[in-house]
Design a protein around this nucleic acid. Sequence first.
DNA 1: CTTGGCACTCGGGAACACAGAGTGCTAGAC
DNA 2: GTCTAGCACTCTGTGTTCCCGAGTGCCAAG
Lengths: 337, 337
Amino acid sequence: MLDDRKLAVLRAIVEDYVSTNEPVGSRALAERHNLKVSPATVRNDMAALEEEGYITQPHTSAGRVPTDKGYRLFVDRLSQVKPLSGAERRAIETFLAGAVDLDDVVTRTVRLLAQLTRQVAVVQYPTLTRSTVRHVELVPLHDRRVMLVLITNTGRVEQRVIELPEVVEDTRIAHLRAVLNASLDGCGLLNVPDQVADLPERLPVEDRPVVATILSVLLETLVERHDEKIVFAGAANLAGADFSTGLRDVLEALEEQVVLMRLLGETSTDTPSTLTVRIGSENPFLRGTSIVATGYGSGDNELARLGVLGPTRMDYPVTMGAVRAVARYVSQILAAS
Amino acid sequence: MLDDRKLAVLRAIVEDYVSTNEPVGSRALAERHNLKVSPATVRNDMAALEEEGYITQPHTSAGRVPTDKGYRLFVDRLSQVKPLSGAERRAIETFLAGAVDLDDVVTRTVRLLAQLTRQVAVVQYPTLTRSTVRHVELVPLHDRRVMLVLITNTGRVEQRVIELPEVVEDTRIAHLRAVLNASLDGCGLLNVPDQVADLPERLPVEDRPVVATILSVLLETLVERHDEKIVFAGAANLAGADFSTGLRDVLEALEEQVVLMRLLGETSTDTPSTLTVRIGSENPFLRGTSIVATGYGSGDNELARLGVLGPTRMDYPVTMGAVRAVARYVSQILAAS
DNA sequence: CTTGGCACTCGGGAACACAGAGTGCTAGAC
DNA sequence: GTCTAGCACTCTGTGTTCCCGAGTGCCAAG
């Protein structure tokens, strides 16, 4: 049905359309990509491709434009991820290496990705639920207040001020801290509830109200932050592009954590290095946009996702290369710290 | 030069133009705002106003549009800040009261403000330099690593992992923590360098290398975060409006911390409740936009600024009311915590 | 100082023609 | 059977012209 030359024609159409943003006609095609056949032949192939739904023409007597299905075929079979240049790799490395803490890593990553792809970049903060406890700290503030600080192996820090039911001396606080750390150190966040379930019973009766208060806040913190934080950058890159769905919708989606989450895709348990590409109508919302995303994380388990969002008419090979490269470097950085 | 009626005409022009987004002519003006004079009279007044530079006409045969100078006069002398409705006040209060930490307060504030004004809201994180130290914590991690946690009175928490020059037992760490807190508790962040300057000398010789390392990181943290964090929300509200300077420029500015900072205005030492309004060309950059900003903070000292950014053609009384109200509520929340 | 009248200007929409790009189809060449 | 050349056809986008209407500026009278 689709011989090699027809595929070559489709690839040429996608490439030309992406670079010129204008429907591409048979003559220009035959000339620019030395196909060694005449425009008439190209026209026949185009008719076949259109028949199959890979391309379409906006108006009669206009050139052809790829459909979502056409882009899909292009991404799956006709293109290769384009690796970054050496200079770009080095730039990424040095830029990310300068980060001082997790916040900084995420901020730098999202900006970097936006600049690299000239599109909107989206980065999800590493998921708490897959991290482990590195340290729990109880800081006496004054009166009956203590601050609970939870540090995870991904460098994330959560803190809460707790109002205790009674005045507690610092030494007791120190003891509680030791107990908490003894049972939680290195524990996966998902297992924390189980680990601390019998803790009050193992302590003297007089400590139980205090411990109960602290634990309830601790558990609450875990649950609350389950709705993950997502940041984006590069909205200015939307200004040029035209979206079928309207710029407003895109901007709104970017500020809706929930929608962004869905767009980035479910956090898969696959190896994090696989790239997800959702093209146009394949997206749950924002059917006029495409998304290239992948997971990242230290080692083999995927901690969170990152990707870019742009018009359906985007340079997929380049974008995919950038996303993949950035994800790898971030993973490295996180593993090292 | 400008009698009362001319001022009334200017006010009417601003109000009409803001609500309709179309140049306003003399007939419509005379009808809608019962000025009790004929269109011809209005025309004379308009000619005078144009002569003075308060209004202008886009084309020879079109109605008049306010100039930046016209808006300025309107804001300064012809309008009153419009207070929020009771329902709005209650909504703000409950929404902000639900925040769990400083991050949350800022995030909620910026979203609230964007929704309230239907414009882009911008909020600066409370400045470190005006805060005071509530607590310093040293958390032994393992080997030669400790985590330094700095908690300020505004609820802000900074943390850094420090690589020590030698292995240090936990008891020595605890001692150092006590020493640090003793000299820094309640100390203004700006004074921290002075406070700790002679600290190494007051300690045994064997502790000095460790203390020096810790202090250098502490001071670095203070300096680094001097470039303040700013967040924005409501970019989708830009989609409808048209900016003379181009949407792209506005979006770019929003992602440039430095530019945003300049736009919000210098942190003044004035009482925080004064509203700053910069109209069109009065802005350092983005001359096509207007900015309504104010300071906020607990008590009398201004901790940071917040505001909204929108087209020059905005509803100043309403916007000013919203900004002022939100700033007050945030200040309350911060003072309480 | 205000008002009604009047001539003038100019933007924007409707109608129209036209050039150019691109197509589909058919008949012939390899 | 596949490719090619030629040709008639169909659009879109653009430039032109025309005209209406909104709005103005000015002047003379109240």
